[in-house]
Design a protein around this nucleic acid. Sequence first.
DNA 1: GTACTAACCAAGCAAGCGCTAGTGTAACCG
DNA 2: CGGTTACACTAGCGCTTGCTTGGTTAGTAC
Lengths: 189, 189
Amino acid sequence: MNASPRRKELTRQAAQLFVQEGFDRTTVRMLAQEMGIKSGSLFHHFRDKQEILAAVIEEGTQNALVIAHRALEKCDNSPGARFHAMARAHLETLHADRNAHVVALYEWRRLDVEARDHLSHLRDAYEALWQQVIDEALEAGLIHGDRFLVARFVMGALNWTVRWYDPQGPRTPDELADELLAMIRHGSA
Amino acid sequence: MNASPRRKELTRQAAQLFVQEGFDRTTVRMLAQEMGIKSGSLFHHFRDKQEILAAVIEEGTQNALVIAHRALEKCDNSPGARFHAMARAHLETLHADRNAHVVALYEWRRLDVEARDHLSHLRDAYEALWQQVIDEALEAGLIHGDRFLVARFVMGALNWTVRWYDPQGPRTPDELADELLAMIRHGSA
DNA sequence: GTACTAACCAAGCAAGCGCTAGTGTAACCG
DNA sequence: CGGTTACACTAGCGCTTGCTTGGTTAGTAC
């Protein structure tokens, strides 16, 4: 709804706490303290606690969508390059916007029905982009398998990285994308 | 600790609720009602609410470990067959013991330090089994890549199935394991 | 100066929370 | 028979929760 800069900053801080504590264990008093205001003032910016969660997830998903589109525009037109660009963009977003994505993955079920309905459209758009890239790779013979299953296996492998991937570590998102593609590629298209 | 059959049944019912509502939103009163007793009586079987969570996760992980071992004993000795058996066992456990595993994946962070410490040993044992099977497949040239990354990508792809896989649907765990292996296999060992 | 608004605060309400204390009862053991 | 154990109950304590209310302050508009 509202997109004031103040609200965006508050949303970013909320994401941090949601990751640390989980949504249910994060109290409005904790949120307020992190934001440097009192708990009552919080409800001037958000209707209720759930709306903060929805704002966090919306931010993250929208960013991921934008970054993925941009990556696809910039890269080569070959199916391999496009797959690689998507995987790399996915991992980079997971790094840059980590808090929001962890929240999206772990706290999705805490959203009320309306918010979930609204946000699932965003998520569907993102997954459709992936499905398209994977279809191209399948058609070119770069990878093999059922289009539905391959898409889900790949997204699973990538999303699981939030559990173990350390962006400070020795491996860059680019290298990780290389390895993933190498693992599943059959042809050399 | 205790492993009375009564406690096991209560644990199973708790898992159901934890999946539906999430750990934090499941109150001891809800748990008691589901179990057909009053909330006070619950603390005769479990020291506190956290211990119920730990019991749920322990059950599920222990089962997974047993089933995986059994599957490896029964199958052929080829790396491909062993990989397939592990993947299939993983998916079957996820089906048979779904509640416990969903809880383990989503509510791990709600465990207190001691429980987490105890249970992570169980989980490590399970993951070590996977690492071994994957190492064999790599050595045989069946699949390619970094052993560490391949293991994590594969486990990610499999664990992600709790989000979309419907055991009532047309695909069996066996077929899914086939597809996963087909997707990543290079050689024909 | 007056009017309006965005941002915040102090105080607290009603409800719900995990958990405890003390008691009752039926089943088994010597 | 008395004693112990397993399991359940009633009642409620002390605390925290999300959220509301009514009011204050600073900045901007005309």
